[in-house]
Amino acid sequence: MRYRPFSLAVLGASLLAPAHAAGVAQPGDLRAFVLAASCAACHGPDGHSPGAIPSLAGKSARFIEFAMQEYKSGASAGTVMNRIARGYSDDEIRLIAARLGRREEVR
């Protein structure tokens, strides 16, 4: 058996990876990590903001993607988020949301 040298299982140890991450290895994991890692500088590690900036922890992937798109289009008015959201493609926003967001699973 051969391991993908870089598997999501490895990345699963990351604070940024939500609890569901210990799953199937997928290509582009590191790409999603690098994209989403930028968010932590303001929103805190693992989306847990200790200060005035809203936390992302516990938000669903669908919510994060929707909010980013609203900022990108200007439908929502933020402070810095409109300027930041315009820097990402729709695919990149999906990757970020999937990485940071809670997956809506059937319980």
């Binding site: 590690p45 903001s49 005035a52 402070t79």
Partner: peptide
């Protein structure tokens, strides 16, 4: 809006130190 960005300046500091 200016007051909110001032609050975010300190919020950013708390987050980036933790990060």
């Amino acid at each position: 809006v200016r007051a909110q960005e001032a609050a975010y300046a300190e919020g950013w500091y708390a987050s980036i130190m933790a990060d």
